Amino acid sequence: MNRRIGALGAAALALSGCVQEPQRSVVVVPSQSCNTAFRVVNASSRTVERLYFSHSSMNGWGNDQLGSSVLLPGRQVSYRAANTGNYDFRVIWNNGQAAELRRINVCVASRITVTNSGLRAN
């Protein structure tokens, strides 16, 4: 009897190597849509005359987002991007100099700061 149990145990052990583990599927849950609101803060000592931003997949800058307004030093303006993802930003100061910042994820960065040395995202 012990031999039978031993033989059955050995057979069961041998067969257990053939038993496949159940496959586990990975479920990807789409992330919640991000908040695409951001603000542009002029922390520079110069007036920003023109502000452009566009989705990084686009060619060209499109329209000046300030329109007939300007962004004075110490002031800020708020926007909401139409889509999620990466955006490019460009400012032109009243002295004609320009600065650009590329591929900024608006789901992560909610503030674009204009400094005397350029643009930064946080």
Rank of each mutant, 00 (worst) to 15 (best):
N63V: 13
S68Y: 02
N86E: 05
E21N: 09
A121I: 03
R80E: 09
N42F: 07
V40C: 02
R102V: 08
A37Q: 08
N116C: 07
A99P: 02
G17S: 14
G96L: 05
L101K: 14
T84Y: 07
G17W: 11
G9C: 11
N2Y: 07
T84S: 13
N59Y: 03
S33R: 09
Y87L: 14
L13P: 00
S25F: 12
Y79I: 13
A7P: 04
S25L: 06
V108W: 08
H55R: 02
E100P: 03
S25P: 05
V27N: 15
L51P: 00
F53K: 04
P22L: 06
C107Q: 05
S45P: 08
R120S: 12
N95G: 05
I92K: 01
V19G: 06
S78K: 12
R4F: 04
G118W: 13
S54N: 15
V27G: 02
R102E: 08
S54V: 10
N2M: 10
A7E: 01
G60W: 02
L13K: 01
V28A: 10
R50G: 00
S57A: 13
N94Y: 12
V41H: 14
E49N: 07
G9I: 02
G6D: 15
G118D: 14
L15Q: 06
L72K: 15
R111G: 00
V27R: 11
V41L: 03
Y79K: 07
T84A: 12
V29G: 06
V19F: 07
G96D: 15
P30I: 02
Q97Y: 01
R50W: 01
V48F: 08
M1G: 12
Q32S: 10
G67W: 08
A43C: 11
R120H: 11
G17V: 09
R80Q: 08
V48H: 00
S33H: 03
L15V: 11
G74V: 01
R3L: 00
N35E: 04
P73D: 13
I104N: 04
S33G: 09
R111D: 09
I92A: 15
L66E: 03
S25K: 12
Q32Y: 11
R111I: 03
S68E: 14
T113A: 12
I104W: 01
T115H: 04
G85S: 05
R39V: 11
Q76P: 07
S16L: 14
N63I: 05
L119P: 04
N59F: 05
S117T: 14
P73W: 09
G96T: 07
T115N: 00
C107T: 03
I112K: 08
D88W: 01
N42M: 09
R102Q: 14
A82Y: 02
I5L: 14
S56N: 15
N86L: 08
S78D: 02
V48T: 04
Y87T: 11
R50V: 00
Q76I: 02
Q32P: 14
C107F: 00
N105D: 08
G85L: 12
S45T: 12
N42H: 06
T36K: 06
I5S: 09
L66C: 13
G62M: 05
A82C: 07
C18D: 00
T115F: 06
Q32V: 11
M1F: 02
M1I: 01
V77T: 11
V40K: 01
S68W: 07
V27W: 04
R46E: 00
V91P: 00
G118L: 06
A7Q: 09
L8H: 11
T36N: 02
P30A: 12
L119S: 08
